[in-house]
Simulated scan of single mutants.
Amino acid sequence: MKKKLYKSTQDRKLSGVLGGLSEVWNIDASLLRIIFIVLTLLMVGVPMIIVYVAAALILPDDKDVWE
């Protein structure tokens, strides 16, 4: 069974994008958030923030996926 990418409503801090990614990749959401913050600081933030905002706008919530 393929895992679908969606925003998590259970593991949400901002919009749920990283919570959804952590479920798909089977890693801890806190670790993924730390990695995201470090990469954002190292890359001067703009590319990572643009990707995050685009994902937040495009991805459905997990409750929408199951209905």
Rank of each mutant, 00 (worst) to 15 (best):
I50K: 13
A29S: 08
V44N: 13
K7Y: 02
W66E: 13
K13E: 02
K3A: 12
L31S: 02
A55R: 10
W25E: 06
M43C: 13
P60K: 14
L59K: 09
K63V: 06
D62E: 13
K2W: 06
E67A: 15
K63N: 04
G16L: 11
V53D: 01
I37S: 05
M43D: 10
D28T: 06
G45A: 00
L21W: 08
Y52N: 09
R33H: 04
M1P: 11
R33K: 07
M1T: 04
V24A: 12
L18S: 02
L21V: 03
L59E: 12
R33L: 03
D28L: 10
K63R: 08
L18Q: 00
L41F: 14
S22P: 01
I27Q: 07
L18G: 00
L57C: 08
L21E: 05
I27K: 06
S22I: 01
W25T: 03
G20T: 04
P60M: 12
K2E: 06
L5D: 06
A55Y: 09
K3S: 12
L39E: 02
I58E: 10
L5S: 02
V17S: 10
G20S: 04
A55M: 14
T40Q: 13
I49N: 12
L42H: 02
V65R: 15
V38D: 02
L31E: 00
L32Q: 00
D61V: 06
I34V: 03
K4I: 07
R12S: 02
T9D: 12
V44E: 13
G45T: 00
I35L: 12
S30R: 04
R33N: 01
G19D: 05
G45K: 00
Y6C: 06
L59A: 09
V46M: 10
E67R: 15
K4H: 11
A56R: 11
A55N: 05
V44F: 14
V51L: 15
I49P: 12
P47I: 04
D61F: 13
R12G: 01
M48G: 07
L42S: 01
E23T: 00
Y52L: 11
W66L: 14
M43S: 11
M43P: 03
L21Y: 10
W25C: 05
E23W: 01
G45N: 00
E23S: 01
T9R: 14
S22M: 02
D64G: 01
L42D: 01
L39P: 01
M1G: 14
N26D: 14
D28I: 06
M1E: 09
Q10G: 04
R12A: 02
S8T: 08
L32F: 00
V46F: 07
V24L: 15
M1A: 06
I58D: 09
L14C: 12
N26Q: 11
V46A: 08
T9C: 11
S8R: 10
L39F: 09
R12D: 02
A29D: 08
G16D: 08
V65G: 12
Q10H: 10
G16F: 09
E67S: 15
V38P: 00
D11E: 12
E23Y: 01
V51A: 15
K7I: 00
A56Q: 09
N26M: 14
P60V: 07
I27L: 05
K63M: 05
A54E: 11
L57F: 05
V24M: 15
S30N: 07
R33T: 01
K4L: 10
I27N: 04
A54Y: 14
K63Y: 10
E23K: 04
L41G: 08
M48I: 11
D11K: 15
Q10I: 07
P47C: 06
